[in-house]
Design a protein around this nucleic acid. Sequence first.
DNA 1: TATGAATGAGGGTTCATTCAT
DNA 2: CATGAATGAACCCTCATTCAT
Lengths: 208, 208, 208, 208
Amino acid sequence: MTLSPKTRVPKQKRSIDKKNRIMDAAMALFAQKGIHRTNSKEIAAEAGVAIGSFYSYFPDKHKLLTEVLDSYLCDHFDRIWHENPAPDSTAYDRIIRHYMENLLRAYDTAPDFHRETHVLRYSDPDVKALYDRETEKELKQIATVLHQFKDHMTVTDMEAASVVIHSAAENLAHKIKFMGSMDEHRLVSEFTAMIYRYLSKDGNAGEG
Amino acid sequence: MTLSPKTRVPKQKRSIDKKNRIMDAAMALFAQKGIHRTNSKEIAAEAGVAIGSFYSYFPDKHKLLTEVLDSYLCDHFDRIWHENPAPDSTAYDRIIRHYMENLLRAYDTAPDFHRETHVLRYSDPDVKALYDRETEKELKQIATVLHQFKDHMTVTDMEAASVVIHSAAENLAHKIKFMGSMDEHRLVSEFTAMIYRYLSKDGNAGEG
Amino acid sequence: MTLSPKTRVPKQKRSIDKKNRIMDAAMALFAQKGIHRTNSKEIAAEAGVAIGSFYSYFPDKHKLLTEVLDSYLCDHFDRIWHENPAPDSTAYDRIIRHYMENLLRAYDTAPDFHRETHVLRYSDPDVKALYDRETEKELKQIATVLHQFKDHMTVTDMEAASVVIHSAAENLAHKIKFMGSMDEHRLVSEFTAMIYRYLSKDGNAGEG
Amino acid sequence: MTLSPKTRVPKQKRSIDKKNRIMDAAMALFAQKGIHRTNSKEIAAEAGVAIGSFYSYFPDKHKLLTEVLDSYLCDHFDRIWHENPAPDSTAYDRIIRHYMENLLRAYDTAPDFHRETHVLRYSDPDVKALYDRETEKELKQIATVLHQFKDHMTVTDMEAASVVIHSAAENLAHKIKFMGSMDEHRLVSEFTAMIYRYLSKDGNAGEG
DNA sequence: TATGAATGAGGGTTCATTCAT
DNA sequence: CATGAATGAACCCTCATTCAT
């Protein structure tokens, strides 16, 4: 009886389920068929919901996308950094490899969805904003780790270093997960080597 | 890095016949307004051509896109590798920096078009094929350069190294050119440092 | 023009029960946003009532409209004829001017609502029926007044005269209240002159 | 081959026919079923045209309406003032009656369409603009006529007089043509009497 | 060969009304 | 009786592509 906002704010369990059903259906279809090859009617049908319900939970198709993406990216971040914590070790190469492996595993939840939204990053301001937020969070984490080892490192511009490392890792993950580039194991090893030698004061030691 | 500096056939200023006029118009509009916000009528109008002519030169809109992209990527490759040949030097860091700078300059011709097509790479098989071909060419170039200096390098899996380097460079270029990430100069320096230390047998020397 | 000055039952401030709250809300929104730009959910929300309740008081949106209009038109009539009784005078021009002024004042209660429903008169049979009833009442009043002064008048077809006068007055009111036509005062004076000379046996006397 | 405007400007005979077919179909349907009960597909179907053609001639449904109305109102004006010129007489009442009769006849072309658009006058700015222009033209004509007879008239505020007369005539026409009010002949006579006595210096003469 | 009028499937969104809780 | 989630027909409009001229 309060002056209701235009889109329903689900309060009852049944409703929350429904909103989630729509989001799940959307995520699945976006991944399967691509985002702009999926229309709102299909999403509603896949969720087992009338088209009218769709529009009572989301003001439009685009807002649905950003809500799904928002939720996905939060999960994604947690999977990289919280689900499987880094080994408490001074073997930096272990930490680097662990990071890259976690990153790759994080993509396994919904690689197609990630790919489909990632491409919108460059053309859709709302999607860009969400990815930028995610990138900021990632950069902060990387910078924190770099800081811990700063006495053993040659790098001085930590901020730039974070960007370069993040950028390299991200695109490598995309090559592996989106394009099936080469053997994953070989690339992880090479990436680990690259970052290790880049950071390490004496470039020779390492895993093996 | 002396690979055939054969003069690049200038593909710009080719507004000679109708087909080329259409391709130029498409490229301009795709860059300006985005690929799926540009419709075939607009392209024909911009090219000063009837919509019917459009369809006598291209079976459909998608084929137009791939032809334009094909031509663009050939140019792009030449701009990176042939337009401004690498210094004949053993100062590897110079060569690395030179590569990254050339790469960034190559994007300046049509950054918006590059961005717009790049995103389709992940969802459109034909676009993917063209980018894959381009990537193959790039990897071969990088591998060739690595080979020249293999005695001064720690790296053994050259193929993996090429992928990792290319991947890092490409994404950094995208961050800089598509997203306006940080200061270009700082990132180029940091990238150079990363690759240099990664490859170099003794990780300490370098530019400065 | 002394027709029963029985005190008008104040229909405003009737926000007592749900049904009245809904009717008030509807009237306000119809006026504010236009009738077909107002949907049933908004009315329910504005009334602080569930949409389900709406439909337990009114079989459909259209019935709500006609009930609101019915009530409004009764008010409207009272405001013209009972609220501010005509001067007991033989100066006919005074009486004419008084009528027109009362009419204009009556519109001030809810000009936007009046305008919005008035237009439906021509396309909606139920709305037409209500307005026709209202018009009948008005015509009767005008005829009664004309009758009182029949000895001083040239007019013989009183029924036709009533229609012509009512019609002129009504449309002038709409021009003034709905369209902001010209200066109200000038038009009222000119209308008074027109009707006065039309009715009066010697066309020259009058107010000034 | 000129940079084409978004909606087709018909140049060939066939196209002009088509645009006219659409406008005629729209006018017929608007009259028959009401403006907002007529959808664009129906109009296209009635005109024997694909929905896509509809939208190549008109940017949207609303523009179609205003174009049809524009054309209709120009016709309407001509029918009142040019088709059947007023008698060259000094019998003012003849002129008044002639005006009212012409006005009524003008409505006979498309009374339902007139009614349907007239109601939008109060809520649609573009429709209002067209009707306002029409009203201006009418007022000018009336003022011109009044001017011709100014020596025989009592009225001094000609502008206000024009508005009052036009307003009375218009609404009377609506009552007669839209609502079937009373006998047309009686009302025309009474209207003629009213205006004649209103204007005439000695209020007694006249037709009969 | 060139033209541009014509096509119509398809997409996003609204809202009056119902009915299970 | 009150609630508000659910429904789905209906609407407006776009645009890749065809084909008669």
